[in-house]
Amino acid sequence: MENTKKVITSIGKYYYPTKGGIEKVTKDIAEVLAKDGYVSKVISFDGKKHKSGIINNVDIIRFKELKIGPAPISIKFLKIFNNLCKDSDVLIFHYPNPIAEYALLKYKGNAKIIIFYHSDLIGYNGLITKIYNKMTDKVLNKADVIIGTSPNYVKSSKNLKKYEDKTKILPLCVNHGEFETDKLYDFKNFNFKNKILFVGRFVKYKGINYLIDSLKYLDKSYGLIIVGSGKLKNKIKEQIKENDLKERVLMLENLSNGELKSVYNSSDVFVLPSILKSEAYGIVSLEAMANKLPIITTELGTGTSFYNVDGFNGKVIEPKSSKAIAEAVKICIKNKNEYGINGYQKVRQEFSLDVFNRTILEILKEL
Rank of each mutant, 00 (worst) to 15 (best):
K235R: 10
D46Q: 09
G340V: 01
E327P: 06
E299R: 15
H176I: 15
E2M: 12
E366M: 09
V263R: 00
D268M: 03
K112Q: 07
F270E: 04
T302M: 08
S150R: 08
A143C: 06
P17N: 08
E178M: 08
D46A: 04
K204Q: 14
L121N: 05
I60C: 14
G303R: 02
N308W: 00
S40T: 12
T297W: 03
K48G: 11
K166Q: 09
M251T: 15
G12Y: 10
S256L: 10
Y185A: 05
L218P: 00
K49I: 03
A280H: 00
K206F: 03
K237R: 13
I22D: 11
F179Q: 05
I240Y: 08
E299D: 15
F202G: 05
G109N: 05
I22H: 09
S262Y: 01
K233C: 05
Y14R: 14
L160I: 09
P273Q: 08
K112V: 07
K13G: 12
V174L: 07
F81H: 03
A290Q: 08
E31Y: 11
L105E: 09
A111H: 09
N265D: 01
D182N: 15
V269P: 01
S229P: 00
N110V: 00
V139D: 07
Y185L: 05
P70R: 14
P151E: 08
D219I: 07
V58G: 04
K193S: 10
Q349F: 04
G123Y: 04
N82F: 06
K231Q: 12
